[in-house]
Design a protein around this nucleic acid. Structure first.
Lengths: 335, 335
DNA sequence: ATGAAAGCGCTAACAA
DNA sequence: TTGTTAGCGCTTTCAT
């Protein structure tokens, strides 16, 4: 690889001058500039970002840490982030924790060692004090999707509680009284908030919460598939009339389980979901859902990051909440 | 951030000694080692990978460049790669070219500047000489999914030609004579090879190739959706009896288009695909497909990279071809 | 077994 | 406008 020194020698100037023409941040005479640029072309010189990073304390890399790399929702967020940061020269390092606190901490350490400029974190740990350590060390973190109450940091999240409350209220309005839920890990803020909204809606409408209808900790498709089958078998004599899936993956798992058990949606059992499933256009019935805008979350997070690194509003902590709306389709039976 | 120098001072040793205990590559007395490790803990010191990279010419970063970040197929490859390289300390930088040659070249340049140790490239350009430049500059490239004939580089690809040939032969055996195809960009090797297998199967069975049934360049879901609708309208008086979609995304687009036009699969028109669609478990009818193993491709690519960086077989060029098999389900009508 | 010092490729303060 | 030089944080050679 050709270095700035080789360019300087060949062009008979100092490395400083070469640096100046590359960065255009100090005056250089036209004549010298042309000579240097010509030499750069000839030699095919490209500046070494590693050296630059070391010198300038800036890597133009941002880490994105999510619980599940195969969930489309997080991929969409990543696309949103990418679309706003990539034009400014930033690259994304994408990591998956598999909902594992240890792995999350390890990844955060690795990103810290790599001196990424920012990390966008969809955390699935509740150990805020451990995350606080990273922040104290000077790591820049924006929480996405999830948030941790006691953590002094920026975040871009959805209005989980209110959206779920509205969705479940709608379900109750349709006459449902036996209402089940498939929750993620309740240690994760999104899952917790959604479940809280769920419970509050039941409470406000005097609907009893039937513990046997609640599935906990089935955060991915396969686990949900299995757990929902258990739950249905367990309650085969008195099934819930409707199920609330707390995210897209779980809705998919639940649908597959119900289909396999020959329970038709919504005739035999209704289903609603927080977030839309894949390829919803092709799947019958169309699910009634809370629509998420994952790409938008990514864009907001990207913009927030850019604002922070540019030095504006450096120290105030910002919390962006993306509103969610209910999309009523045809997976809920009127009773 | 605390540096090695601060550790050295506090522990009353030289930076060299600290370096030695961190890396464990030179003898250090037990006593000194303990003292240093204790200091490292106390100070919360973490080595700066940027500085390391600069010194050692090794970044432990690998770039992955794909045409479409929202296609699950590439995400699965990424997961495969990640699973084998991450345990050895490598991180993935994930980039999407949107099938745009310029953007591809720009990303490659950026990754080159970042001095990534390797790049895994699913290229959608045919400008092999431009890619050759990167290789000549010393960039390490493994082609994944796609390959370029004239390029001296390792690759991990599928057996596109033969698999498609077999699938189309099966379709013909079912009595089909009016056979359409939805191709990606024929400039991309995978698309080209699949289409060649398609044509050869027709030829060998004396089936005429009806140009009007061929859709070209609709590489993503939305474009395919639109183009297939055009194609159907164009041929409304004499529809093809079967369609071959050259990848999962296009199969999805085609399915949505057909559904919207009230053409039932397989009663009104049959459909086969190279690669499986999302959430196939929930979508009727189950598609007859060539099954791909994207995760395996990723794993193979990751392993190949690891082998190369470890210095084994450094100079021979390896071509791994993953076999594909046909999965017959029920989207093809027997005529 | 340990320390001193050079150097990876670059930028920026200082001098000229 | 340009050059000299120090230094970013680390590894490693060469002495000791």
């Amino acid at each position: 690889m050709v270095t700035i020194k080789q360019v300087a020698e060949k062009a008979n100037v100092s490395t400083a001058t070469v640096s100046r023409v590359i960065n255009g941040n100090y005056p250089v005479s036209e004549k010298v500039k042309n000579k240097v640029m010509k030499t750069i072309k000839e030699l095919g010189y490209r500046p070494n970002s590693i050296a630059r990073s070391l010198k300038c304390n800036k890597t133009y890399m941002v880490g994105m840490v999510v619980p599940d790399i195969s969930n489309n929702y997080f991929m969409d967020i990543a696309r949103g982030v990418e679309s706003v940061i990539s034009p400014l020269g930033y690259s994304l390092i994408f990591c998956s924790t598999d909902e594992n606190t240890d792995k999350e901490l390890r990844l955060l350490n690795a990103l810290n060692d790599k001196r990424v400029d920012y990390v966008l974190l969809a955390s699935s740990t509740q150990e805020d004090h451990k995350l606080q350590k990273f922040i104290d060390q000077g790591m820049n973190i924006i929480m996405i999707d999830t948030s941790l109450e006691n953590l002094q940091t920026d975040s871009v999240v959805e209005d989980n509680y209110n959206a779920t409350y509205k969705l479940i209220s709608y379900v109750i309005d349709q006459g449902h009284k036996r209402i089940g839920a498939v929750n993620g890990l309740l240690s994760v803020s999104t899952a917790k908030e959604r479940y809280n909204g769920f419970c509050k809606a039941l409470e406000d409408h005097d609907i009893p919460l039937e513990q046997s209808y609640i599935v906990n900790g089935a955060y991915n498709r396969r686990k949900t598939y299995e757990e929902v089958k258990f739950m249905i078998q367990r309650n085969i004599n008195k099934l819930p009339t409707v199920l609330f899936a707390a995210n897209n993956d779980m809705a998919e798992g639940a649908m597959i389980a119900l289909k396999e058990m020959n329970l038709k949606i919504p005739d035999d059992i209704s289903l609603v979901s927080f977030g839309d499933i894949n390829l919803a256009e092709l799947i019958e019935p169309r699910l009634t859902i809370i629509s998420q805008n994952a790409v938008l979350i990514g864009e907001k997070a990207g913009e927030l990051m850019l604002k922070k690194v540019s030095g504006n509003s450096e120290h105030d902590i910002t919390k962006v909440t993306i509103p969610s709306e209910i999309i009523i389709r045809n997976s809920v039976k009127s009773i």
